[in-house]
Amino acid sequence: MKVDFWLNGVRRSEEAQPDTLLLDFLRSRGCYSVKRGCETANCGLCTVLLDGKPVLSCSVLAVRADGKKVVTLEGLQKEAEEFGAFLADEGAEQCGFCNPGFVMNVLAMMKELEDPTEEEIQEYLAGNLCRCSGFAGQTRGILNYLRYKKSQGKGASKA
């Protein structure tokens, strides 16, 4: 079936089987940032933005992307570098395998929540598992990033 959609801002017209999952569809089109950590919608590694909302690409049919805007980390490199630097400065990126999904969801959170508390941050990101870091370093990185963004003035270089 034909899927007309925007991938990272570029209009694409592609073929997909009715049961192709968005995750596999995106990887087969070179979006290697999109990872699979489970088959049960529990890990958050495959998070992408669908019309601006973070979703699990393992649970979305590729054909449902028709007419929609799909954004992966490949399309948010500048933002990923900006936030990622704060993560890196804690050493909290560790093995990195969960990073793309995690960074996607942090960026989604930045858009959705205004000035989130630490509790709100933890709840928003609860669906992003990480087995290396123990999460504390991720939280430090996010809080530093939020402080930095605040000091930069609201909305500066937001995606």
């Binding site: 290697y32 940032s33 570098e81 990622g84 630097a85 993560l87 050493g91 990073n99 960074v103």
Partner: peptide, 22 residues
């Protein structure tokens, strides 16, 4: 010293550096 990991930026920006990417 708390030096940044040399592969950090590739990892946080989601580069294809793992077995199934390569």
């Amino acid at each position: 010293k708390p030096v940044r990991k040399t592969d950090a930026m590739a990892l946080v920006t989601g580069k294809g550096v793992y077995v199934d990417d390569l």
